[in-house]
Design a protein around this nucleic acid. Structure first.
Lengths: 163, 163
DNA sequence: CTTACAGTAGACAGATCTGTCTGGTACCGT
DNA sequence: ACGGTACCAGACAGATCTGTCTACTGTAAG
């Protein structure tokens, strides 16, 4: 998606419709504004990640390890340009903007997923550990997006050690 | 600065000069383009932070603790909207853009500062620990910018535990 | 067959953005 | 007194952006 690769404000509607091979009127028939498309883009990404994560096998800490490994792999891979949600948040300053609400939802979902896994595994201090896993996730996404492989690996090590 | 509070692409030159109480011609007399102002803004922020950090007292790990505490305090404080460098990187997709080079420089400087402190304190695994401290810094900035106080505190705890 | 709908290309309006230019004013060193 | 420099307000050019509109085409259901 162009928004992810180049940034939301830098990509205009004309670019979007040209890329999609669609007429302008058709676009505005499906979305009442560019903002609605942006929200749909993030909502889709949210859903995609939910499915991706639910497909990760394993139990307890082992499952978290697998998730972290996958996260790190993607983050240092080609085409990665940071977390779409964090990038979007940087472009939308108003915390009450729909885009920001989606970002908040996404991060809360990730944190709660981590917490649920820890609870099911009978771990202690699940809240603090979930907060840590969220923060490390953010850090890995940032470092990966900036091409900092060493920091990504440090993040994985730290997260695992923190459990 | 407007760029920090509202985002770089969303703030036009007209807003900047109105805010600065300056005529347009005067602005373009000092900066040959908006991009040059953006670079100057980040360069100034870089310098400001260098001075801020050099003023932090203490030695060794104690100094890092103080830095982290300050970082966490600022990150959950009012007016904080994330790290200006990470926000800028999210808005400039091209890794070879001058803005991105400044972001890389800033993060490398922070990492090396952490490493130098660890070396002076005679610690082991200084590289890995410096990478960790950088990643946690990124995470704290992101979490703070999104109003996630719990994650900020988890970051501080983790960084200290990792030393 | 006809009606309704979804699609096409692209012109257009109106706003906004970057950057230039005009014309005039104030200060400052020589 | 004078030339240079920096400043001002604001018009302007040209590009680009979002969103609307016109006019036409294909298709599927009743």
């Amino acid at each position: 998606m162009l928004f992810y690769l180049e940034g939301i404000h830098t990509v205009g509607v004309d670019r979007v419709i040209a890329d999609a091979g669609v007429a302008k009127a058709t676009f505005y028939h499906h979305f009442k504004s560019k903002e609605e498309l942006v929200v749909a883009y993030l909502a889709t990404e949210y859903e995609r990640q939910r499915e991706l994560f639910s497909a990760v096998p394993g139990d307890g800490v082992e499952r978290i390890e697998t998730i972290l490994a996958k996260l790190a792999e993607v983050s240092v891979g080609p085409g990665f340009r940071g977390c779409p949600f964090l990038n979007a948040a940087a472009e939308f300053a108003d915390p009450d903007h729909p885009v920001r609400h989606l970002v908040d939802d996404y991060r809360a979902w990730y944190r709660d997923l981590m917490r649920d896994i820890l609870v099911a595994a009978g771990r202690s201090d699940v809240d603090q550990k979930a907060d840590l896993l969220l923060l490390v996730r953010d850090g890995i996404a940032v470092a990966g997006g900036l091409g900092d492989k060493a920091a990504v690996e440090a993040g994985v090590r730290t997260a695992l050690a923190g459990l």
